[in-house]
Amino acid sequence: MSHATTDRDPIPAVPDDGAQPLLGFGEVRTCLIQNLAGLSPSASVALMQLTPGSPVSKVDRPTRRVVSPEQVTGVDCRLHVAREGRGRAIGTVLSHAVVTNGRILQGTAHAALASATAKERREWRHYLRQPGVVEVLGSPKPHNVMDGYLTDASPARGLDLASISDRIIDEVQQSDRLDHTTALRTGTAVVRWAATLAQEAKPTVGIAKSDIPNFHVIRLNGSPEDLPMLIRFCEEFALHEWLLTTVQDVIVPRAEADIARDRDPLDSLLFALNELAPLWMPPTHLSPDMKALWEAMESRTHYSRLFERQVARIRDLRDQVKIRPPRRF
Rank of each mutant, 00 (worst) to 15 (best):
R8V: 04
P15C: 09
D17F: 06
Q20Y: 09
Q20M: 09
V28A: 11
R29G: 13
N35G: 12
L39G: 11
S44P: 14
L50P: 15
P52L: 03
S54Q: 13
P55Y: 04
V59P: 03
R61M: 11
T63D: 12
V67C: 06
S68K: 01
S68G: 02
V75I: 15
H80R: 13
G87Q: 14
H96I: 03
T100I: 15
G102A: 10
H110S: 15
A112K: 13
L113H: 02
S115W: 11
S115T: 15
E123G: 14
Y127E: 01
L128V: 04
R129N: 13
G132N: 07
V133A: 05
E135F: 04
E135L: 14
E135M: 09
V136N: 00
D147R: 10
D147Y: 09
D147H: 13
P155H: 14
P155M: 06
L161K: 04
A162V: 11
D170R: 14
V172E: 01
A194W: 02
L197H: 07
E200P: 12
A201Q: 15
T204Q: 15
A208D: 10
N214L: 09
I218K: 06
F237Y: 11
V252Q: 07
A255W: 02
E256L: 07
A257D: 06
A260G: 00
D262G: 01
R263K: 02
D264E: 05
D264P: 01
L269N: 06
L270M: 07
F271Q: 06
L273G: 10
L273T: 09
L276A: 00
S299Y: 07
R300M: 05
R300S: 03
H302A: 12
Y303S: 09
R305C: 00
L306D: 08
Q310A: 12
I323T: 08
R324H: 01
R327I: 05
R328F: 02
